[in-house]
């Protein structure tokens, strides 16, 4: 097996959208005419995801994240470009591709709504033709990672959102796929459930060396799970590198807080490319007495916000 889980080369995806007109007159107009415009949801994106990685796939709403995932899962055919997932072209053989991927899409449960979780698992075992031994081992692994008993015999419709998400993630890993796509897995969950879910994802990734492609708006997920992140905006890839690198890439900002002689705090954001902390402190000391200092790293969240808001882009 090659070491890349996903290879995308110059992938684009265009949609035709009907222009709807405003108001009563507009709707009558729409009744008779077809007026389309083309929207580029994904624009010339190339990327490579290595086996066993957890990738954070980020971008503001409508940036093209979901579309990319749909292309990788074989649901959508790209308008242009080449793509290989697990060594296969996903849209050409969706079924064969589906065999080796797992998907958790937003808050939409893919489990049988009325069935107890264990019955859903059994059905999935049959659908994916998972050998009994592997199936049992997987359930054992699950038991070692989460407390399975309270949910195993509960119908999905009676579960809380957190339990449902947990179940969906477990179901996505059940057939031991090479790649699992997680689209906003922690959306709407409370703090402790979020932590649980992150732990589970990391545990499964480590135990099975599963590649995980994670889209999220929660930087907590990113900080907890991803070493590498890819950011897209308006369909174009704008960042693809280590998370640590991100902070220095867009200027290595840190915040220096100093307590002065009159016990007031002053803050100075420092771009370490242009100047360094010691220098700023020396300058300050010429005029003030500094009683105390604090040095704060800029958070991922702040960096990402800078990027989304159209700060510096590469």
């Amino acid at each position: 097996m090659n070491s890349e889980a996903v290879v995308m080369k110059n992938i684009s995806k265009e949609f035709r959208v009907l222009n709807r007109h405003e108001g009563l007159k507009g709707s009558i107009h729409d009744l008779f005419s077809r007026d389309y415009r083309t929207v580029k949801a994904v624009d010339d994106v190339s990327l490579t995801v290595n086996r066993g990685e957890i990738i954070g796939y980020l971008g503001p709403n409508g940036a093209g994240k979901s579309t990319t995932i749909k292309i990788m899962t074989g649901v959508l055919e790209p308008s242009a470009g080449e793509i290989m997932v697990n060594g296969r072209v996903p849209y050409k053989d969706r079924t064969a591709n589906a065999e080796h991927i797992g998907v958790v899409f937003g808050q939409r449960s893919q489990l049988w709504w009325n069935l107890p979780l264990i019955e859903s698992f059994n059905l999935l075992r049959d659908i994916y033709l998972v050998p009994e031994k592997e199936y049992r081992e997987m359930l054992e692994l699950y038991r070692s990672l989460v407390d399975l008993e309270p949910i195993l015999h509960k119908p999905v419709r009676q579960m809380s959102l957190g339990q449902r998400t947990l179940s969906d993630i477990l179901a996505a890993f059940l057939h031991n796929p090479g790649i699992v796509f997680l689209d906003e897995p922690t959306i709407g969950l409370d703090v402790s459930m979020k932590a649980k879910i992150r732990e589970l994802i990391r545990g499964l990734n480590e135990a099975k060396e599963t590649t995980v492609i994670l889209t999220t708006h929660d930087m907590g997920d990113v900080d907890a799970l991803c070493r590498r992140i890819i950011i897209i905006d308006k369909g174009r890839k704008i960042y693809d590198n280590d998370i640590g690198h991100l902070k220095s890439y867009f200027g290595s900002y840190r915040t220096l807080r100093m307590r002065l002689g009159d016990d007031s705090w002053v803050e100075q954001v420092i771009d370490e490319k242009e100047t360094d902390v010691m220098h700023v402190m020396q300058e300050m000391q010429k005029e003030h007495r500094i009683k105390d200092i604090q040095l704060q790293e800029i958070s991922t969240e702040e960096v990402i916000r800078k990027i989304y808001e159209g700060g510096k882009s590469a």
Binding site: L24, S27, L31
Partner: peptide, 15 residues
Amino acid sequence: TRAGIIESLQFRLGT
């Protein structure tokens, strides 16, 4: 009522 008219007109093929 007006919103209803617009909404149901938008279902043009449906009509």
